[in-house]
Amino acid sequence: MTNTDPIRFAHRHLLDIARLNATDINQILSLAEHYAEIARTPDKKRDLLRGKTQINLFFENSTRTRTSFELAGKRLGADVINMSVGSSSVKKGETLIDTAMTLNAMHPDVLVIRHGDSGAPHLLAQKVDCAVINGGDGSHEHPTQALLDALTIRRRKGRLEGLIVAICGDIQHSRVARSNIALLNIMGARVRIVGPTTLIPSNAAKMGVEVYNKMSEGLKDADIVMMLRLQTERMQGSFVPSIREYFHFFGLDKEKLSVAKPDALIMHPGPMNRGVEIDSEIADDLNISAISEQVEMGVAVRMACLDLLSRGTAA
């Protein structure tokens, strides 16, 4: 598909992957492919969103996701405002809905929200008149991350269907994992999750994945190995005993990777903890690591999402 094909994207918001279908996802990815090409040319700016206002409302610290959304909006010509919790009225006790109503009164066209509570973007979407993009909510979803991961995989492997994808680490608290599981299942990949029992949600198998507690089993013949970030506060003996034990059993190094397919691709949503979940030797090996490409595709995918949502084709 090229960008001149008719676009039918029947969604007002992008709240989670779970409510998209394969056609939606393919549309986003193809459009993103087009924006990825533009981003590699000297003239990156378009005026598709000229006159439109995008507010990035970040209740959690973020550098890469916020920057990525900001760049995506600016490259499409939108006016982009960043609000982060440290400098907002939220610190003064305002509720999420009041903040939403206040912002709504300023007539934005797109709200990108990141929030520590699962479901916060959904609440916001009920209260505002503009499009809402989930930039990560609690342990629920991070849809643009899954889309950029899918685009990266598609570019490297040519497809998603039938690939064996092992998502490793702290599945329990990961919105990246949930979005990726949903997307990869929709697109027909075989998803495995690998991690310590304490970081795998109960009933995980009901998400349509195979569950492993050993890297040697979970990584066997994998096409894609996705490492997740382990939050340091979870390492203080409550979920895992220590960093050295975690790295010993779940940190990705050459030896653990050796059971995967020879051309296996390594991904990480960032920021990485070197020596905790991933060995530098692997993270920095450009032949197997797609980590930089993920960041690049992030901007392209977010441009595609902003583009589609601003067309207003939803009922």
């Binding site: 203080q236 003996g237 895992v240 005993p241 050295r244 034990e245 059993f249």
Partner: peptide, 14 residues
């Protein structure tokens, strides 16, 4: 528990 203190898990795997 580490140190038998009942506060954190010991390195059971190692």
């Amino acid at each position: 528990p580490k140190g038998l203190l009942g506060e954190e898990m010991a390195e059971m795997g190692l």
